[in-house]
């Protein structure tokens, strides 16, 4: 029998702990496929965050560190500096990266640390049960913004790609969406590109995934995708923000 699809070797055979319809599984797979396709499996290490993907260290089939909440870019920095011959990535959610770990994220980017950060933005704290995130949209109701996020009181969603685009060092910055099969195919190319630049030690690479959280949004997976397309993409437009490989003379 011909095998036409199988789990990438860079994922373990453990069952994901994610809710039905959650996009974490897709982004895990895209990263694992990139590791396989670029032949990085024997020289890559990852850092898992705190959040829904806290068990990512069990899912990626490479040596992994579990970081304290928000500290993944610092942990990855220590790893990359200790083993410059190896390649390092972090996988972080919006609370982890854009709230408690803002300093670690921005400074790793500003140093041009030669790591990849994969950032899952679903505008909510999933694991703790649906609290407001730094990327929660204005008016969006969560368990800690029960009357809707009031931007006059708490500010607007943080736009991670836009923030680090003001820095000179990052090598590659792109926001992708996981909201349709077409978008996922496009996202795959972007993940591969970021990983390729990581493999070539070119510099700091960052991919933001506009994602969904059907459980905590209180929507079916299909409706969550529709809602995200209509609302999330306005604040978080997909596209490339930086690709130094396209700039002459780098």
């Amino acid at each position: 029998m011909e095998i036409i699809a199988q789990r990438p070797k860079s994922l373990t055979d453990l069952q994901f702990t994610y809710c039905p319809g959650c996009t974490h599984g897709i982004s895990h797979r895209l990263i694992a496929e990139a590791i396989e396709e670029l032949g990085l499996r024997n020289n890559i290490m990852g850092v898992a965050p705190v959040g829904c993907s806290v068990f990512a260290y069990k899912f990626f089939n490479c040596d992994m560190a579990e970081a304290a909440h928000g500290r993944a870019p610092a942990v990855a920095t220590g790893m990359k500096r200790a083993r410059p011959d190896m390649h390092v990535f972090t996988y972080q959610g919006d609370g982890d990266l854009a709230a408690i770990g803002t300093a670690e994220f921005i400074h790793a980017a500003n140093r041009g640390e030669k790591i990849s950060i994969f950032f899952i933005n679903n505008a909510i704290y999933g694991m703790t049960g649906g609290q407001m995130a730094p990327t929660t949209l204005p008016g969006m109701k969560t368990s800690t913004s029960p009357y809707g996020r009031d931007e006059k009181d708490i500010g607007y969603p943080i736009q991670a790609c836009e923030i680090i685009s003001s820095l000179k060092a990052p090598y590659f910055i792109e926001r992708v969406s996981l909201l349709s099969p077409q978008d996922i195919l496009k996202a795959k190319k972007v993940v591969n590109k970021a990983m390729l630049f990581n493999k070539e030690n070119r510099g700091f690479t960052f991919v933001e995934f506009v994602s969904t959280c059907p459980t905590n949004w209180g929507l079916t997976p299909a409706k969550a995708q529709q809602w995200a397309k209509e609302n999330m993409l306005k604040f978080f437009p997909i596209g490339n923000f930086r690709d130094k490989s396209m700039e002459g003379g780098e």
Binding site: A67, R71, A74, V75, T77, G78, M79, R81, E104
Partner: peptide, 26 residues
């Protein structure tokens, strides 16, 4: 060797965590 001035003590100790996890004297 690696000398890195971190953005905070919090970041510095987590860099230590990462390098120690790679088995280096840090």
């Amino acid at each position: 060797g690696t000398f890195l001035q971190a953005e905070s003590e919090v970041a510095a100790i987590n860099m230590v965590y990462g390098a120690a996890g790679c088995g280096k004297r840090v």
